[in-house]
Design a protein around this nucleic acid. Structure first.
Lengths: 335, 335
DNA sequence: AGCGAGTTGGAATGCGCTTTCCAGCGTAGG
DNA sequence: CCTACGCTGGAAAGCGCATTCCAACTCGCT
């Protein structure tokens, strides 16, 4: 920049003010022109790190997800990316690949980077120790001047976008019950996965209230992934039950379940209906079209980002996002 | 850090050396211990921006994609993320949302951040002006000390991972021909999209060589997206042709095409076969299972990152990645 | 014409760290 | 016993910028 200043025949201070438009200071037009021309001529590019240091704050925002290749997270990431761009922030993405120990590590990384804010997507696990580590890491981050928003369960004492998992799946349960289904199974995901747990709980409780409780033996645990859904469905089918409808706690698992049914020669929905959760865009065209609970994931990303960027509040804020039931061919009405 | 040094009773220099392990200098063990303990006690977190400035290089890598919510790009991003983590680099992700003018802007952003390297994913367009702008932006980035790798067409004078689009779709064409198909249509994507163009060209040329050239009227242009595929397929079906097999230049379009067929009451594959390109993981369970060309996208991301991080070479390096044909139910053999 | 207020350019300081450079120490070799 | 060298700690310089403080200058008013 000193070269630019010299080239333009002004002082370093003036060059800085001309290029990055100082707050309560103006630069005469002709000088500004000269400086900008010189900068252009010299292909000058301001050093963001130096700016960050001088200004005491960066222009970047961190996003932590479990797996960026998972459409659930990539949708959220798209929203965060949008909102970050609008706020003129660069987005640093960290993907833990489902390794929970990496999460606080990434928070530390982003603390070192002095990111403006961190958005943590991906549900919490029931692991008090891990959550405590995460809480402390986030606290350190906030003590260093950053702000945080979470997508998931409001466990970490920070602003959180809470997806109405329980009530969404309860709505779904009632809708399916309304379509005539009575005997349900649940592909419930991992025991410790709180999102999975909430969805399962909401679903099961609603059914119990309707007088069609889910047989505990028909709540199958498996990974929260396509393969987990496949495996759980295979287990279920091998047991030879007479289930009418299978609820998988997310769409990806539901897809795995449908694949398992197909491979086992079981027709969906003729022999067994299947429903999921999330309404993943990429999966809207599968056959049969999947009944599910639509969650506006891109919006969730945007909201989380805006929450993180909003002026700090004393109390952790909660933003609730409802899902809406979408019934499709995978769960036709039973006549 | 000066506080840490004071707390540990050593100089700032020693604290720095103890914490970030200087190159050719050692610190006595007891002192190091003292410093680390003090750092822990004070919850000290080194400022990455200051380190970047002092060291003259950052620990971050940029990735530019068209749309992070697209599974094609999120797969590549997963690979880049992996490789970046291995190299101890933070990944800054920029998603252009298909706005080509944003691409060079993001390069400038990453230049200001002094990123170590940039990986640009997402095929080039046939737009000399845009490509020229991009080339210049990347050159400026490299002049400022960064390195670059591209995924796509080797147009920008930088290291590039080249996906064998033409030969992959030629292989697919031959395989489909081998299964007895003769009358083809191509959902060719946008005219200016070079990846789409290469795939279309490879496919059409291979068929021409086999003596079953594609009728130019049956090459439909549309967006490179699910909706583009849907629209193109609708157009095709409305025209009422007797096509046996439709090749969509990517899986997402193929899925749209299948949806369009279904909505039009046309059965896939009984009435018309459909094939795609990419073998997107999330789409492997659609019905009917899609014949396609598998591209190891995660590996592509890893390779591009490694290419970008490898010592500079004078000549732009090219790494070729082949796709492999995967025939599934969507294109059964014709008897 | 003279004075104060407002405006603008420039010198200097500091952001938090790494790294040279220098000095002090202990040790081995003569 | 003395010197030369290796090892280690500390002082200080500098990375590239924003910003404060000061000085100079302009304008409007009396």
């Amino acid at each position: 920049m000193s070269q630019v200043a010299q080239e333009a025949g002004v002082s370093l201070a003036t060059a800085s003010r001309a290029i990055n438009g100082s707050a309560n200071r103006t630069v005469r037009d002709d000088l500004r022109e000269r400086v900008l021309a010189a900068a252009e001529r010299l292909r000058y590019s301001p050093d963001a790190n130096a700016q960050a240091m001088a200004r005491g704050r960066t222009m970047s925002l961190g996003l932590i997800v479990h797996d960026i290749a998972d459409p659930y997270f990539s949708s959220i990431a798209a929203g965060v990316s949008q909102a970050a761009a609008r706020a003129d922030l660069a987005m640093t993405l960290a993907s833990t690949q489902h390794d929970a120990t990496l999460e606080p590590r990434f928070v530390e990384l982003l603390t070192r980077q002095r990111a403006r804010a961190i958005v943590v997507a991906g549900g919490r696990l029931q692991d008090d120790e891990a959550n405590e580590r995460m809480r402390r890491a986030l606290q350190d981050f906030r003590r260093s001047g950053g702000s945080v928003a979470l997508v998931g369960q409001p466990l970490l004492d920070v602003d959180t976008v809470v997806i109405a998992n329980a009530s969404g799946s309860a709505d779904l349960a009632r809708a399916l019950h309304g379509r005539g289904y009575r005997r349900f199974a649940v592909l419930a995901g991992p025991e410790v996965h709180l999102t999975a747990r909430d969805r399962n709980a909401g679903f099961s409780e609603a059914l119990a209230q309707l007088g069609s409780p889910v047989d505990p033996d028909l709540v199958i645990r498996s990974a929260f992934t396509r393969d987990g859904g496949y495996e759980a469905m295979s287990t279920l089918l091998a047991a030879g039950t007479d289930v009418e409808c299978v609820f998988a706690v997310n769409d990806v698992m539901a897809v795995g379940a449908i694949a398992a049914a197909r491979d086992a020669g079981v027709r969906v929905p003729d022999d067994v209906a299947v429903a999921g959760f999330d309404d993943i865009v990429t999966l809207r065209d599968i056959t049969p079209a999947l009944s599910t609970v639509r969650v506006p994931l891109v919006d969730v990303g945007v909201m989380a980002t805006e929450l993180a960027l909003a002026p700090e509040s004393v109390e952790p804020r909660l933003v609730h996002v409802d899902g809406s039931v979408v019934l499709r061919e995978s769960t036709p009405g039973r006549t």
